[in-house]
Amino acid sequence: MPVSELSKKDEIKNELCKTGIEELDIMLGGGVPTGSTVLVVGSSGSGKTTLCMQYLINGAKEGERGVFFTITEPLFKLTKNMEGFNFYDKKLIESGMVNLIDLRIISERLGLDTEKYTVEDASALLDILRDIADELNVKRLIIDSITALCYRLQTPEMIRDFIFKLGSSLAAMKCTTLLTSEVPPRKFQYSQYGIEEFISDGIMFLGDIERKGDLIRTFQLVKMRGAAHSRTKAAMSISTKNGVELTPLLKSRE
């Protein structure tokens, strides 16, 4: 990366992008450094999509336009699941403050509906993502999930290159990006391919612990470049009324 681009990135990092989830912003020391690419890691049902959507909608309520690229579920299912949450506001979608895009449809239109992408395909996809972000002037972007996208990239180098280039260009647009990463349950790993976490600026880990047979959702900020963040494990709650909430996890051994 050229020196001028690096210093630009440092400049941007002094600004913070509030998630709007009170306890999370406290853990972050105010918010995610603007322009960061953050991996939201968790197994199926851990709350990755809900957390990302809440972040996007909270931003839109503060006047920051956002885009949500879904790969794992169709748009109608995504919106149906979100409609139950109080934070969800259909008007933000209708007004274009929150844009929901099915990346599979875009891929098909680009003729990228093959099982595995070539370097050229990946480059074309990257361009389209950048163009959409630029055209819509978004400040918050989600890819749900980067795991599904990486599945089509044939080599670790392609994955590294894709995420790095995506992160760099979005950072230059002062766009703060969350990428969801799917991992197997109860495995202490941050990504499927072991590359994504090294290129990301931050890692939010959504897990669970078992207590007397019940599962307690947990949340941990593993990494956040440019932020003096908390590293304690928090208990996470998801409710239709308040969406994602965090509270200190009780630490006593069972």
Binding site: R211, K212, G213, D214, I216, A235, S237, K241, L250
Partner: peptide, 14 residues
């Protein structure tokens, strides 16, 4: 469940 103590605390404060 009564084992979800953090959730109980959260609901009280909410």
């Amino acid at each position: 469940s009564p084992t979800m103590l953090e959730k109980i605390g959260l609901e009280i404060i909410n």
